[in-house]
Design a protein around this nucleic acid. Sequence first.
DNA 1: TAAGGTTTAATTGTGGACAATTAAATCAGG
DNA 2: CCTGATTTAATTGTCCACAATTAAACCTTA
Lengths: 155, 155
Amino acid sequence: MKTAATDTPAARPPVTSVLKLENQLCFPLYAVSRMVTKAYQPHLLALDLTYPQYLVFMLLWEHDQLTVKELGEKLLLDSGTLTPLLKRMEQKQWLSRRRDPRDERSVIIGLLPAGRALQAKAGRIPIDMLDKLHMSPAEISALRTQLTHILTQLA
Amino acid sequence: MKTAATDTPAARPPVTSVLKLENQLCFPLYAVSRMVTKAYQPHLLALDLTYPQYLVFMLLWEHDQLTVKELGEKLLLDSGTLTPLLKRMEQKQWLSRRRDPRDERSVIIGLLPAGRALQAKAGRIPIDMLDKLHMSPAEISALRTQLTHILTQLA
DNA sequence: TAAGGTTTAATTGTGGACAATTAAATCAGG
DNA sequence: CCTGATTTAATTGTCCACAATTAAACCTTA
């Protein structure tokens, strides 16, 4: 009994159950992603950051200099998303945007002091977020592994 | 000197590593969700549907009539997202929007014939998507369970 | 070196997401 | 009944996300 048909067990059960929201993997993925982003909100708001901007910062805190292309490859985002986002971050003096003199097609994003300064303030965010999840490090690690695996299948 | 230390292993490892993209759970969640949505694209495009519209349809195919509030509760979306989305779906004659005569504050969304007709065409989508994931039903079920659990922690 | 193809960002247009506000309808207490 | 609080959608404004197009710079190769 895979469909739980209440009245006509043989009629259309396979088709219907497979098209039920509760039987999808995609919906919890979509919903959890949005809810997790929302859970970051209060922490990020205190730093005047949005969630995708926070992701950009995590890369810049580590690498200091990256091209738009490199950011896009690591975040799986294209220039249509990144260009306006990076311009907003530039306006806040968090980073610089300049063409690579050796290849004028590339735009190099560089971390500025104000952007570097946010790193210390952001240090508590991942810790506070882990609290909200009520999951053990092992569970989190396992989930990340599964998701990363899916990513390699799709990306 | 709290920032650098490529040479002093004990200095700031906790802070930095915790702020690395690769150590986050949130990023794979965010990226996988977008990639899965993108994987639906070719299938949905054939039906002239977007992914959130497809989610709305899965609920309407099951329930036939739902208020905006009920849709929002089930999809975890607010009226700022749903109202314009539902208006676009109304324009395509997929559904109707009318006030509840017994409570004029509520808007009842009703499935129309053209919307019902899409159900049959959508039947293959979940099956085709499962193929793309290269995961066993058990793995998928386990992952859905974990995600649903996180959802209850956050929502 | 000139022509054609490739790479890289930027731009444009559409469609979500969501916070905050507005406005109408309903409800509860007096 | 009347008043004030609550519920519900709609609206507004900002910020992603992404497909498709454009344009400039670079590269290849004949």
